[in-house]
Computed example of a mutant assay.
Amino acid sequence: MTLFNLRRGAPAAMLAAALAASVLAGCATTSGPRSSTAVAPYRDSVELAGGIAINYSKDGKRESLTGKFTWQQTKAATDVTLISPTGQILAVINVVPGSATLKQSGKEPRTAPDLDSLTTQALGWTLPVSGLREWLQGYATDASGKRFVASPSNDTVVTRDGWKVEYATWQDDTAAVPQPKRIDLTRLGAGQVDDLTIRIAIRPGTE
């Protein structure tokens, strides 16, 4: 089922584009010494905006998508607004305990017990939204169940649910408290699609 089109000629629109924005530019790593300072303490409430590019293979065909987003997170809820590259609001997603809802202009809302179930129901594969609540801030649970805290000198982790999370660039990796700028996600092992990678770029000044 097509949820929305990100651009003319795009394949089945991906709820995945709900998470980020614009074509990822300026992704070169910062030169100079690497700081070992960890990111700021985890916050239950954050507001972010940035960029996403999604690449995957399905039925032998390579697909790619880009889009725009805003992300508002509280302890009990996550709200994501989808925006096309031309600035059109495509959809609004709300996640609260026990319920995830997708709203699109002129269409009936779609609801599922959680966003993982909603993406599986709509797309046939799962988007790691629950993980992104931590990953966007530089935190994760590693494959052994231990807490991972990112820093410019400790920037890669394999999560308990089978994602490789790489903090490719930082807003300022020499800052006293560096903030993630670009995060590269790779789905490891078998999944509903092949070679799934997601690049997220966080816009400066939105944390």
Rank of each mutant, 00 (worst) to 15 (best):
I202P: 00
E134C: 02
S84D: 13
L132P: 08
T159E: 08
S35V: 10
A150M: 12
A38V: 14
V92L: 15
G189R: 01
T78Y: 04
F69D: 11
D114M: 12
I89M: 13
Y42L: 15
V46N: 02
A38Y: 04
V177S: 10
V39M: 05
I89F: 02
S105C: 00
R147D: 13
T81M: 07
S64V: 14
V80Y: 01
R62P: 01
L48K: 08
D155L: 04
R7P: 00
T78Q: 10
W71V: 03
D172C: 06
A38S: 13
S144A: 14
R199A: 15
A168L: 14
K103F: 11
L127H: 08
D142C: 08
K164P: 06
A76D: 15
L188A: 06
V177L: 14
I200H: 02
L136N: 05
V129R: 02
A175Y: 05
Y139R: 07
T70A: 01
Q121N: 13
R160F: 13
K164W: 06
L65K: 07
T30V: 13
R203G: 05
L196Y: 01
Q88L: 15
V23Q: 11
V23T: 15
V39K: 00
I202H: 02
A49Y: 01
S57D: 11
Q192D: 15
Q88I: 15
E166W: 05
L115A: 08
G9Q: 06
R199G: 12
A38C: 11
Q137R: 09
P178H: 02
P109S: 13
V177C: 02
W71C: 06
D184K: 10
P41W: 10
L82Q: 08
L90H: 03
Q137N: 08
W163V: 03
T74W: 05
Q72V: 14
E166G: 00
G145R: 05
E47Q: 09
S105E: 15
A13H: 01
D161I: 14
S144K: 13
T101W: 00
K164E: 14
L24D: 07
G162C: 05
F4P: 06
K61W: 06
A16E: 11
I93M: 08
L19H: 01
G145F: 11
V80I: 15
I93C: 09
F69Q: 09
V177D: 07
S45D: 15
K107D: 09
K61Y: 09
A143W: 12
A176D: 05
T81F: 00
Y139C: 10
L127K: 07
V149C: 08
A12T: 09
L3P: 00
L132N: 07
P152M: 06
R34C: 00
L65Q: 14
D116I: 01
G189V: 05
